[in-house]
C-alpha cells in the first residue's frame, strides 16, 4: 500500500493530527480544528433542520397538500425571535410554553412506564443470589438518595450499602467509557496508518 493521494483523506488526516497535537499542549493547530468543528457542526445541524423539518414538515405540506395548519407552528417559532425586541419580548413565552408543555406532557407517561417496567424487572421471579443482590442494591441505592430521613442508625447503614453499589456502578460505567474512547483512538490510528499512510493493511 502507498500513501493516500485522495485530497479528502489528507484533510481528514491533517485535522486528526491537529486534534492530537493537544496531547503535547494547547496550540493554534488544535484551536483551528476545534473552532472549525464547532462551525461546521452547527452549519450541518442547521442544514439538517432545514431539510428534515422546514422542507419536510412545513414546505411540502403547505405547497403540495395545501395544509395551512403548519403556518401556526411556523408563526409560533418565529415568535421566539421577539426576545430581541424589548417591547414585545413577552410574546416569546407562547412558543416556549408550547415546547415545555409538550416536553413535560411526553415525559409524564414515559416516566410512569419506566417506573413500572423497572419495578417489575426488580421483582425476583425466582429467588437466587443475583436476584437478591439486585433487590438489595435497588432499595439501598434509593435509600441513599432519600434525603427526607437523616442517614443515621439503620437508614445510615442501608444508605452505606447503597454507596457501595453506586461505587461499583460508577466504576463499571467509568471502565466502559474508557474502553469506548480507546476503541475510538484505535480507529483513528488505524485510519492514519492504513487509509492515509498505507503502512498497514
Amino acid at each position: 500500500m502507498a500513501i493516500a493521494t485522495n485530497f479528502w483523506i489528507w484533510i481528514a488526516a491533517l485535522l486528526t493530527l491537529a486534534i492530537y497535537s493537544f496531547l503535547y499542549k494547547d496550540n493554534p493547530f488544535y484551536k483551528f480544528a476545534e473552532y472549525l468543528l464547532v462551525g461546521i457542526s452547527i452549519g450541518y445541524g442547521i442544514s439538517v433542520y432545514w431539510h428534515n423539518t422546514i422542507i419536510t414538515k412545513v414546505y411540502n405540506p403547505l405547497v403540495y397538500d395545501k395544509n395551512f395548519l403548519v403556518l401556526i407552528p411556523l408563526l409560533l417559532g418565529l415568535l421566539m425571535f421577539s426576545r430581541f425586541f424589548k417591547n414585545v419580548s413577552y410574546l416569546s413565552r407562547i412558543p416556549i410554553a408550547f415546547v415545555v408543555g409538550a416536553g413535560t406532557g411526553l415525559s409524564v407517561p414515559s416516566s410512569f412506564e419506566f417506573l413500572f417496567k423497572q419495578v417489575y424487572a426488580t421483582m425476583p421471579l425466582k429467588l437466587d443470589f443475583g436476584s437478591l443482590i439486585i433487590v438489595v442494591g435497588v432499595i439501598s441505592t434509593l435509600v441513599y438518595f432519600f434525603f427526607s430521613l437523616e442517614h443515621k442508625g439503620f437508614v445510615g447503614r442501608v444508605s452505606r450499602v447503597g454507596i457501595t453499589f453506586i461505587m461499583v456502578a460508577f466504576g463499571a460505567a467509568f471502565g466502559y467509557t474508557i474502553m469506548a474512547r480507546v476503541s475510538l483512538f484505535i480507529g483513528r490510528i488505524q485510519f492514519l496508518l492504513s487509509d492515509w499512510l498505507g503502512i498497514i493493511k
Binding site: I19, I40, R181, L184
Partner: peptide, 15 residues
Amino acid sequence: YFIVPLQSTMFSLLA
C-alpha cells in the same frame, strides 16, 4: 471528511 474525523478524534482524546 471533516465532522466524522474531528468528532471521533476529539472523543478519543478524552481517553
